[in-house]
Structures are given as structure tokens and as C-alpha cells.
């Protein structure tokens, strides 16, 4: 099996689905010409392979999503790229009031089989360009939210999202695009709504997703040396949220930490910790802890930026606090 990047895995998913289904189209800003295919290169080359089906669109996010919804209603399977997730705010009405409502509000007469792809992330881009909104998105009935952390999951879940008959917000991460992992050449699809144990361990459960999986696995390797084994659960889908593997894990480890990149207040970690405690209170030996981003608008300065985002050392520190009963 070849090792490929997360970016390449996404592109292969797009190529395979476009080949399979002539109704799949890709729309986004600067995805055809600029830098050879999108601000982050995911669609590079696809416009040549699929003439007319990969198109540049105006910088009007409300229309990118809204026209996508209408096309999906009419039997197209649009994959709409928002250059970064920060710009999804411009399209918020279309995402929340339209994409997510159509099927239920019109009593199942209308389906919206579309995918909105967009990267979260940061990189000296300051406060308006360094955000993540998965907690907002995952709170909306009618929407599915997928956030893969590995190239393997990225390919299998993007294919599933394109085939899904509901609107899927598919979150990527700038810092993951260049990461590598094994991806089989054959056509495989992963189920939406199923989380996965990415690493077995017996002392403490970490529930995480997206780029924080990378940091958590790094922390796990550090803690191995101290004889502390983390069991790491990757949610992969944030709505519907599959907490079953986390529950099973807690029954074994009796301790859990949720690690997320976004803000702590009303973050997805708050929901996960609350749900797990409701369902597994008697299994827990310690309160569920959270590692999250600091609640400041992201500064530009390198040191300040780094200080706001959780890294492996923050996970290690949280594990130490829990093992030392400092809560």
C-alpha cells in the first residue's frame, strides 16, 4: 500500500466519485487556475480531467453554498469548496436555514445531497483566518459534520459524503494536508457516524478529532515511556456523534480527556464530557477533563499564536494532572 498525503487522498476521492457519477461537480473560488488548483491544491488537475465539471465561481460564499443547495435539489451532487472555514460565516444562512432545513421542513419532498468542503487551521493568519466552527456546525439537526484526521479516513469519508443524500459539512485542516498515511488504491467507502479507536491503551481515554489526533498520538508516545497508556478515540464524524467506543473505553480506563482545537466554552468537548458523564458516571474515577484552545482572537505573533493552540505537551500535562489527581 502506498503512502500518500491527506491532500492527495482527497483528490483521489474526488476523482473516483466524478468518474463514477456524472452528476458530481466541484465548485469553488480559484479551484481551476490559481496555483494549479485551489488555494491549497486539493483540486489540482481535476478541471482538465473533467472539463466543465470543475468550475471557478464568484467570491460569494452565500451563493456558493446556496447555488449548490439548489443544484442538489435538482439532482446534481455538488462538492462546494469554501476556501477556508472562516468564510463559511458568510454562508451561514444558507447552511443553517436552507441546507439543513430542506428535507424536514418540506416533509421529505426535497433532498440536498451536497458536500461543503472547507479547511480549518491557522499559520500566522491572525484572528479572522484562524478559526474552527465544528461545535456550531455539529449542533444543527439536518446537517452531517465529518472531520477526518488521516489520509485513509479522508478518502473513505469524502467518498461517503459525496454519496450521502444529506448535506455534509466536510472539515479539513491546513496542517493535515501534507501529512502522509497508507491509502489503498481500491475503491473503499467509510461509514459516516462511526468513530474509531486509533490506538488501544488501558490507563486513560482521550477523545479527539481532526488535527488534534496528531498531537494526541504524539503525546501518547511520550507517555508510553512513562508507562502510561492512552486509548485514543477519533470521532471522525461530529454529527451524528458516535460516543459508543468512548463509552466502552471509559469502562476500561475509568478516566477520560477530550482534546479539541477550538474554544473550551460551549466547545464540542463540553457536550462530549457532559454526555459521557451522564452515561458513565459510575465508571469514572475522575472528572472528565478538557484540553482546548485558549479563548482569545488568534494573534499574529508567532509565540502568541502557538500559546493559544493545544499541542502534544498540553495533552501530556493534562494526563499528568489527572493521574496525580489534581482536579
Amino acid at each position: 500500500m502506498a503512502e500518500i498525503t491527506y491532500r492527495e487522498a482527497l483528490k483521489r476521492a474526488l476523482r473516483e466519485e466524478m468518474t463514477r457519477d456524472p452528476n458530481v461537480v466541484i465548485w469553488g473560488e480559484d479551484i481551476v487556475a490559481y496555483g494549479g488548483g485551489g488555494a491549497y491544491g486539493v483540486t489540482a488537475g481535476l478541471a482538465k480531467e473533467f472539463p466543465g465539471r470543475v468550475r471557478d465561481v464568484p467570491i460569494a460564499e452565500e451563493a456558493i453554498v446556496g447555488v449548490g443547495i439548489g443544484a442538489a435539489m435538482g439532482g446534481i451532487r455538488p462538492v462546494c469548496e469554501l476556501m477556508t472555514i472562516n468564510f463559511a460565516l458568510v454562508a451561514w444562512d444558507q447552511i443553517v436555514n436552507h441546507a439543513a432545513k430542506q428535507h424536514h421542513m418540506f416533509n421529505r419532498q426535497i433532498q440536498v445531497p451536497m458536500v461543503i468542503r472547507s479547511p480549518a487551521g491557522w499559520g500566522r493568519t491572525a484572528s479572522t483566518h484562524s478559526q474552527t466552527f465544528e461545535n456550531w456546525l455539529a449542533s444543527i439537526p439536518g446537517l452531517k459534520v465529518v472531520y477526518p484526521s488521516t489520509p485513509y479516513d479522508a478518502k473513505g469519508l469524502l467518498k461517503a459524503s459525496i454519496r450521502d443524500n444529506d448535506p455534509v459539512f466536510f472539515i479539513e485542516h491546513l496542517a493535515l494536508y501534507g501529512t502522509k498515511g497508507e491509502v489503498p488504491d481500491h475503491d473503499y467507502v467509510l461509514p459516516i457516524g462511526v468513530s474509531e479507536v486509533k490506538r488501544p491503551g488501558k490507563h486513560l481515554t482521550v477523545v479527539t478529532w481532526g488535527r488534534m489526533l496528531v498531537e494526541t498520538l504524539k503525546a501518547a508516545r511520550t507517555l508510553d515511556a512513562e508507562g502510561i497508556e492512552l486509548e485514543v478515540i477519533d470521532l471522525r464524524t461530529l454529527r451524528p456523534l458516535d460516543l459508543a467506543p468512548a463509552l466502552q473505553s471509559i469502562r476500561k480506563t475509568h478516566r477520560a480527556i477530550v482534546v479539541e482545537e477550538g474554544f473550551r466554552t460551549l466547545g464540542l468537548g463540553a457536550e462530549i464530557a457532559a454526555s459521557l458523564q451522564e452515561m458513565a458516571f459510575n465508571d469514572l474515577d475522575a472528572p472528565i477533563a478538557r484540553v482546548a484552545g485558549l479563548e482569545v482572537p488568534m494573534p499574529y505573533a508567532k509565540n502568541l499564536e502557538r500559546a493559544t493552540i493545544p499541542f502534544a505537551e498540553d495533552v501530556v500535562a493534562a494526563v499528568h494532572r489527572m493521574m496525580e489527581k489534581k482536579y
Binding site: G66, V67, G68, I69, G70, G74, I76, Q94
Partner: peptide, 22 residues
């Protein structure tokens, strides 16, 4: 359908028209 967010349905109409064109 009728839509209740002022202007919200215009992009949807454009999308349906894209489907008709496609």
C-alpha cells in the same frame, strides 16, 4: 417551496436552473 429568509431562496433558484442546464 416558499422560503422565509428574505432573499435566501434566490441562490436555490439559480442552483435549480443549473440542474436544468446540466
Amino acid at each position: 417551496g416558499g422560503y422565509a429568509i428574505v432573499g435566501g431562496h434566490l441562490p436555490l433558484a439559480a442552483g435549480l436552473a443549473y440542474a436544468a442546464q446540466h
